[in-house]
């Protein structure tokens, strides 16, 4: 595959992400409006932050006239998982990849864009991620704007159906490696179970879902990493790139 084809395949994978984003950020727009944002503010705030839980936290703090420090802390906590993802991505970059590529890809790490980027075998090809970003992020911004303007015009049934698009994508990202590797299957099963348990235990279920995600991620990934150390797959990764190129050409 040449760079243009890779870009196009990123664009295609970005469309379902964007559709899911639109639904989610539409509801975000309703809160943004309460925080005093107009449609243009909403578009840029969302397109430059691209974080559902983070934005939700900040908008609700704005409604309550929180201090600037509180807003900074909320952003930090709600987005801390992106720091882990950024570390993970740093290991999938070719050393020669420029600072500029690293900056732009880092800037747009979201759960979904990270997911599709890391799901590709071998080193990261920035063009793929740019395709996904270009398809998804404008819809994220537009969804917020529409939410601010239109409020609750969209029928509940449509919002309800659209809101699982995101989760459908998450499933499609985690299941294939779980099918291939027993350790991932175990990690995913434990994650489902503990996440559910934490959502019903009194006290723990009052923590924000962002905080719960961080705690569970560090805990589960840590324990699984001790029990099932992952084989070094650098050689494998390189050979995957080669075989992929061959298949494509």
């Amino acid at each position: 595959m040449n760079k243009k084809q890779i870009f196009l395949s990123g664009l295609r994978d970005g469309i379902p992400i964007g559709l899911g984003y639109f639904a989610v950020s539409f509801s975000l727009g309703i809160i943004a409006k309460k925080a005093g944002l107009n449609a243009i503010d909403g578009f840029f705030a969302s397109a430059l932050t691209s974080a559902s839980a983070g934005e939700y936290g900040v908008f609700s703090q704005m409604v309550m006239h929180a201090t600037y420090l509180e807003v900074a802390l909320i952003t930090l906590i709600a987005n801390a998982r992106y720091m882990l993802m950024s570390c993970a991505l740093s290991q999938k970059f070719d050393k020669a990849t420029s600072m500029l590529h690293r900056f732009f890809i880092g800037f747009y790490i979201t759960d979904e864009i990270f997911g599709v980027t890391i799901a590709r075998p071998g080193y990261i090809v920035p063009q793929y991620t740019y395709g996904a970003i270009l398809a998804a992020i404008p819809l994220w911004g537009l969804g917020t704007s529409f939410g601010i303007i239109a409020g609750s015009i969209l029928p509940t049934r449509a919002v309800s159906a659209l809101s699982v698009a995101l989760y459908g994508m998450f499933i499609a990202i985690i299941i294939p490696p779980a099918k291939k590797e027993r350790s991932v299957l175990i990690a995913v099963s434990i994650s489902f179970a503990l996440s559910y348990i934490c959502s019903i235990i009194p006290g723990i279920n009052e923590l924000s879902s962002g905080t719960r995600t961080i705690i569970l991620t560090v805990l589960i990934a840590g324990v699984i990493a001790i029990i099932f150390p992952h084989e070094d797959d650098n050689k494998e990764a390189t050979s995957c790139i080669e075989s992929n190129e061959e298949v494509a050409s």
Partner: peptide, 19 residues
């Protein structure tokens, strides 16, 4: 390395269910 390998799958799984 192993920890970072599992992070994405665990995070996405945690965020999928029961959400």
């Amino acid at each position: 390395k192993s920890f970072l390998y599992y992070v994405p799958y665990v995070t996405l799984a945690v965020m999928t269910f029961p959400a």
